[in-house]
Computed example of a mutant assay.
Amino acid sequence: MATFFTALLSIVVIDLVLAGDNAIVIAMAARNLPEHLRKKAILWGTAGAVIMRILMTIAVVWLLKIPGLLLIGGVALLWIAYRLLTQSGEKESHGGGVTTMAAALKTIIIADTVMGIDNVLAVAGAAHGSMFLVIAGLLISVPIMVWGSTVALKLIEKFPVTIYIGAAILVYTAMQMIVKEPVIAGFWANFPWLSYVVQIVGMVGILGGGWMVAKGKNTATN
Rank of each mutant, 00 (worst) to 15 (best):
Q87N: 13
M101C: 13
W62H: 08
T3F: 04
P143W: 08
S130R: 02
L37Y: 14
V201N: 10
I184R: 02
M101T: 13
L194N: 10
Y172I: 15
V120Y: 03
G116I: 09
V12I: 13
V123S: 10
K91W: 10
P143T: 07
G148P: 13
N222T: 10
M145S: 06
A124R: 02
I11E: 12
P67M: 06
M203A: 14
A23L: 03
I117M: 02
I58C: 09
M203T: 14
T221I: 14
I117E: 01
L138P: 12
L55A: 01
W211Q: 13
I14Y: 05
L43A: 08
W147K: 14
F132Y: 14
F159H: 15
L33W: 00
V60Q: 03
I42R: 04
K39H: 03
A174G: 10
H94V: 09
I26V: 11
V13F: 04
I178Q: 08
G186I: 04
K91I: 11
A124C: 06
G186H: 05
I66A: 02
G210Y: 07
G205S: 01
R31V: 09
L55H: 06
L194W: 13
R53T: 03
H94T: 02
K65S: 12
V171Y: 14
L138M: 15
A30S: 07
V213W: 06
L207G: 09
I144F: 12
A214K: 14
L64W: 15
E92P: 00
I66V: 03
N32C: 01
P182G: 02
